[in-house]
Computed example of a mutant assay.
Amino acid sequence: MTNKKSQVSRRQFLNYTLTGVGGFMGAAMVAPMVGFAIDPLLKGEKKTEFVYVMDVDEITNEPQRKTFPVDQVDGWYESKVDRSAWIFRTEEDKILALSPVCTHLGCVVDWNSKAEFENEFYCPCHGGRYTKKGVNIQGTPPTEPLHVYEQKIEDGKLLLGKAVARKEA
């Protein structure tokens, strides 16, 4: 005599089997998507690489726009892109490397581009203006100063890293 309560019916067996197979297939489909989503978080931030831009003895008191190549990583795509900086010596004889990207909407600023804004950085898109040291002028659209590049000097050569927001102007 067999005990009917301990036996699994055909319907229950099929239900358990299909639930298990469906769960396994669902997990197999979701696992790669979860891995794809969290992989960039697990990679961490790359160390700042410094790139040669110019010799220190070439730097003058007048801002010069210099373009330099950097390695850029977007997710898994790596490429070389050009960055540029306005580089000059301040009145205190310090080297200042400013990003040309306007902090208002990301347009490119120019030096002394209009006679009425002499000795200023000017953004033609919305009339943003900055002093020679890259500080935003009150009453114009930008709400913060131009970003500055991290810099190192090695063997008389200026090396620039990434552009960072200023803590103080």
Rank of each mutant, 00 (worst) to 15 (best):
K157L: 07
C102E: 07
Q138F: 04
V30N: 07
A115F: 11
N136V: 03
R166W: 01
G139I: 04
A163D: 07
R129F: 06
L158C: 09
T140H: 08
N119G: 02
T2A: 15
G156Y: 09
C125Y: 05
A37E: 11
P32Y: 04
W86Y: 13
G23Q: 06
V70M: 08
Y52K: 15
E154H: 08
E116P: 04
D93F: 04
E120A: 14
K46F: 04
K167Q: 13
M54C: 14
V70P: 02
E154L: 13
G75Y: 04
I59R: 05
K152C: 00
Y16W: 15
Q138K: 12
D110G: 14
E150M: 11
T17A: 15
P69H: 07
K162S: 09
P142A: 00
H126C: 07
W86S: 02
K80N: 11
T90S: 09
C102K: 03
P141H: 06
T48W: 09
V101Q: 11
V53M: 01
E78I: 11
K157A: 06
I38R: 06
Y130V: 00
I59T: 01
Q138W: 04
T140P: 03
K152R: 13
P142Q: 04
T60S: 13
V109W: 00
E144R: 15
S84C: 07
S9Y: 05
I38Y: 12
M25F: 09
A27T: 10
D74W: 08
V70N: 06
E92A: 15
H104L: 04
L41W: 11
V8A: 11
K133I: 06
R83Y: 15
T90P: 04
T60C: 01
M29V: 03
I153Y: 09
K5T: 12
G20F: 13
V73F: 07
V51P: 05
K133C: 06
R10I: 04
E58R: 08
K66N: 11
A85H: 00
P63N: 02
P142Y: 01
V135N: 03
F24V: 10
I87K: 01
G139V: 08
G44M: 01
V101Y: 01
Y16T: 12
V135E: 08
G44S: 00
V30H: 04
E116C: 07
T143G: 15
D155C: 14
D57L: 12
T2S: 14
D93R: 11
V21T: 05
K152V: 08
E91W: 08
E78K: 14
G134Q: 07
V73A: 13
M54W: 12
Y52F: 13
L98N: 03
I59K: 01
L160N: 00
V56H: 09
A85E: 02
D55N: 13
L98D: 00
F36G: 08
L42T: 09
K43S: 00
P141F: 06
